[in-house]
Design a protein around this nucleic acid. Sequence first.
RNA 1: GGAGGGGUGGCAGAGCGGUCAAAUGCAACGGACUGUAAAUCCGUCGACUUUAGUCUACGAUGGUUCGAAUCCAUCCCCCUCCA
Length: 317
Amino acid sequence: MQNPVIVIAGPTASGKSQLAIDLALELNGVILNADSMQIYQGSPILSAVPNNEDKQLVEHRLYELFPNNFNGSVIEWLDKITTEIRNLWQENRVPIVAGGTGFYIENLIKGTTPVPETSAQAHEQTMALLAEIGVQALHKKLAEVDAITAAKLSENDTTRVRRAYEVWLDTGVPLSVWHRKPMIKKLPEANFFVIKIVPNLAELEERCNLRFDLMMKQGALAEVETLAQTVADRNLPAMKALGVPELLDFVDGKSNLPEAVALAKLHTRQYAKRQLTWFRNRTKAEFVLNHSYRTDKETIKNIIFNVKNYYRGCTNS
RNA sequence: GGAGGGGUGGCAGAGCGGUCAAAUGCAACGGACUGUAAAUCCGUCGACUUUAGUCUACGAUGGUUCGAAUCCAUCCCCCUCCA
């Protein structure tokens, strides 16, 4: 096997973590987190970070790495995971990347745009401008300096309009120009074997609901109360984990508990759908599992067989 | 029993004679996604056909009118208050 990276991509509650563990046990693997929420420390319960039992079975890395007030992005995660993967190759162990954040996985596999890191001032300035004039006006200003990007974006797309403007402000070069440059792969030497879990929605919905009830029993509410007290800025990524905003509303007295729980479940289901369309339409996989995973030797055997075959092919060619 | 308010598309909720297949929000379905991505955004959403159009729709039935979700009558159901 040469520079293998096994990637397990799938929606929430599809059994990724379990599959990762079962595979890691067979392949001398280490599990690396590819989930944008599990990377933060704030909500191990709500973001379904693997528990201690799982962590004792197999080594897990890149979970609960960043403090809650850290404003992270794909890049920080990419830096971390890149060095972890290289380390594992050195140790002759197999990196198993597991997570539901399609955007992160895509950046790992296909690379990132070579935009330099934007300055904090540019960010602050753009945020201030956004707050002052609103998205649509910012979109208009963007159109003056970067018509191509502006044309592609909805005038309501706060996140992307903000970023495009910020990039222009900081680098003096429109984002559309940056986008023309070739993507940069952090790990050009890696051979990815992607396993995609694609369960049907009804099945997934049930699992999401059951899992959320379990989270509540495990103390999700206390988790959110702590967040409420320790993190001032609720726009921080760590405050966006599913269930956090909903339970926060309850903590703030803006809703009641059953309502908050119902909403959190709804949003979880909607998120799962979004993930499903991401993976369906833009993630190529070497192996597709068309149902949720629970420990099952046949499936593991089958996957291992495919993995070994795949990497034999890679070294030969 | 008396007084009042109301029944609108999967839900909530506007509309109160024509420009209404019916605002808006939610849900649902599909899609996008190049540094906050568990984020953010877009499209569709009565049926059939589809630039246009046809039909069935606003509790039920009947009426007024060129024309009704909108006005009138009767009936059915719901809610609030008084008894």
